[in-house]
Each structure stands twice: as structure tokens, then as C-alpha cells.
Design a protein around this nucleic acid. Structure first.
Lengths: 131, 131
DNA sequence: TAGCAGTATATGCACAATCATAGATTCCGT
DNA sequence: ACGGAATCTATGATTGTGCATATACTGCTA
């Protein structure tokens, strides 16, 4: 609890904030510019694409993402509007909803993936360099 | 550029995102609950408090924070409304504006600091543990 | 099986963030 | 000294986010 510890914690946090902001911003810009996708939209498509059947319960999607439940619900709504996912009720738990990647959604994710990975390669470890 | 590299980048980024979100959320909740301050509001007060004269140009405040210029302008507007800062024009560059901590602003920062540091201590290095 | 607590999702509302741009001032070339 | 480019801040418009809550369904208890 010495002053050194305070400063060290502060420095650690500021570095984390700064690194995160730098990568996020680059991803955000590149995905928006080249694929008309926000970062969180892309990342949800990515999570869905990782499922063997391309589908996932809202609940699980929500806990994997860093978004609130309501933000995720609206996000999936937007993806649905764009024709990238479809929603359907769970048969064995009819409270639940699963989101399923459409063909277009899978294609969008595959198309955007190289951009995403390239930006990660450029910015992770090279803080402050905008892509 | 092997598949391993892709996965490693992805994993690195997800860990960064998750660590950042976890700390940010805890700070946000604790500061809001105990001091009626948002995280970015507190962090701006903190930057001002670090200046020997408690004042700083909007421009510098903006580049130190992770906010856009316009977001910072409004944020300082809110702090001004709360009586925590005052705005004045720079005498030697009348485009510029400097924000100055008021007495109340300095007190608010000092009062909230222990909460901030405590949450940092709890969450940095202990990801997933909400304060 | 009736009722109640718990869980899953969607939505109204308030608010903060961004982008684009306006308004004001400074800087520089000629 | 003039005029245009560049810089600094504020603001209108739009959008995404979180909180609180409504709605629907499940599962447990009596």
C-alpha cells in the first residue's frame, strides 16, 4: 500500500486502457471502412462461426461478449435485419432463443476475418500504430 | 501467418478485452455507487489533479484521455455543471480553453481516489473478481 | 396441479459517445 | 498586411449502451 504500489497500479491500468483503446479503435475503423461492420458485430458473427452448427443461445453469446444482455439483444436484432443471423426459439426451453448464422452471415464473417486478423497483427505489440 | 499465429493473436486480444472490461466495469460501478462519478469523469479529475496548478488545456486533456475531442468537451461541460471545474480562455492562444479544478473538484477527486485505487488493487491481476 | 420463485429475452427510457461541421483564432507565405 | 490553411473548441444529429422493467416460460414445492 505504499505510494509506489499506487503508482504502479495506476500505470498498469493506464497501459491496459491505452493498449485496449488502440487496438479497438483500429479494428473498429478497419471493419467499418472495409466491411460495414462494427467491432462488436463482427465479434458476434465470429463467435457464432466458431460453433459447429453456427448457432448459439443468446444467453451464451451474451456471457462471451463484453456487452450487457440488452445491448446484445439489440445487436443480434441489427444482424438479423442485415440478414446475417436468424432467431429461433429453443425447442427444449421455450424461454430461450438461439441465433443462427445465415449463409450471408457466414460469408460476411469469412470475408472480414483477414482484415480483423491483419489489424490484430499490426496493433498488438505495436501500440500507438494506427492501421 | 500459420493458423497458430491467428489463434494466438485472437487469444491475446480476447484476454486484453476481457481484462480491460472487467477492471473498467468494477471501477465504473464502484465510482458511480460511492461517489456519483463515471469512470471517465473521475479520470479527468485525476489528470487535472496531477497538474501542479490544477489546470490543463482541453487539447491536452483530450489526448491523454481515450475519448474523442467532442466527448471530452461535453464531459468537461458536465464537470463544470457539477461545480468541479471552471473553464477559461488561454491568454496567449485565444482559441484554447483551459479547464481548472475548483476546490470542490479537488475534494471530489481526493475523496474518490481510495475507491479507485482499491478497485485497481482488487481487479488487476485478479480477473473476473468483481469488487 | 396450483402457485410462486427463478430464469431468458425484449424493450422503454435516459444518457454518453461518435461523426461531421460551425465558429473563432492563429500561423504562414507572399 | 492580407488571405488562405491550419488549429482549437463547441454543438447538432445520430447511434449504441446500460438500467430497469415487462413478458414469457420453467421448475419446484406443497
Amino acid at each position: 500500500m505504499s505510494k509506489n504500489t499506487h503508482d504502479s497500479l495506476l500505470q498498469q491500468w493506464r497501459e491496459l486502457e491505452s493498449a485496449h483503446a488502440s487496438v479497438r479503435e483500429s479494428l473498429e475503423r478497419a471493419l467499418e471502412r472495409e466491411h460495414r461492420l462494427s467491432l462488436s458485430e463482427y465479434e458476434v458473427l465470429q463467435r457464432l462461426a466458431e460453433q459447429s452448427d453456427g448457432q448459439c443461445r443468446m444467453q451464451d453469446l451474451s456471457s462471451e461478449s463484453e456487452l450487457s444482455q440488452s445491448a446484445l439483444s439489440r445487436l443480434v436484432g441489427r444482424l438479423e435485419g442485415a440478414g446475417y443471423v436468424e432467431r429461433g426459439v429453443c425447442d427444449h426451453d421455450r424461454r430461450g432463443v438461439y441465433a443462427t448464422l445465415t449463409k450471408a452471415g457466414r460469408e460476411a464473417q469469412v470475408t472480414a476475418a483477414p482484415t480483423y486478423i491483419e489489424v490484430l497483427g499490426t496493433t498488438l505489440g505495436s501500440p500507438g500504430v494506427a492501421a
